[in-house]
Computed example of a mutant assay.
Amino acid sequence: MNAVEEHRLTSPQQVSCFVVTVSDTRTVDTDESGPLMRTMLEQSGYHVVDYRIVQDDYELIRELIHEASSNPEVHALLLSGGTGISSRDCTYEAVSSLLDKELTGFGEIFRLLSYEEIGPAAILSRAIGGTVGRTAVFSMPGSRNAVRLAMDKILLPELRHVVRELNKQP
Rank of each mutant, 00 (worst) to 15 (best):
N2A: 12
N2R: 06
V4A: 10
H7E: 12
L9T: 07
L9D: 12
T10G: 06
S11A: 15
Q14I: 14
F18D: 14
F18H: 15
V19Y: 09
V20C: 10
T21S: 14
T21Y: 04
D24I: 04
D24F: 01
D24E: 05
T25V: 11
R26D: 00
D31Q: 02
E32N: 06
E32H: 08
L36D: 00
M37T: 01
R38G: 07
T39C: 04
T39I: 07
L41T: 07
L41Y: 04
E42N: 08
E42G: 08
S44Q: 11
G45E: 06
G45L: 04
V48R: 06
V49E: 09
D56H: 01
Y58L: 08
R62C: 15
E63R: 11
E63D: 15
L64P: 01
I65C: 03
E67T: 12
A68R: 03
S69C: 11
S69T: 13
N71F: 11
E73R: 01
H75N: 15
L77M: 05
L79W: 05
S80T: 14
G82H: 05
S86A: 08
R88T: 02
D89V: 03
D89N: 02
C90E: 08
T91N: 09
E93R: 01
L98W: 06
L98M: 15
L103D: 11
G105S: 01
F106G: 03
G107L: 03
I109Y: 04
L112N: 11
Y115I: 02
P120W: 09
A122V: 11
A122D: 10
R126W: 02
I128V: 14
G129N: 02
G133V: 13
G133Q: 09
V137D: 10
P141Y: 07
R144K: 09
N145F: 13
L155A: 03
L156A: 09
E158F: 04
H161F: 13
V163K: 10
R164K: 15
E165W: 05
L166T: 02
N167E: 12
K168P: 06
K168D: 11
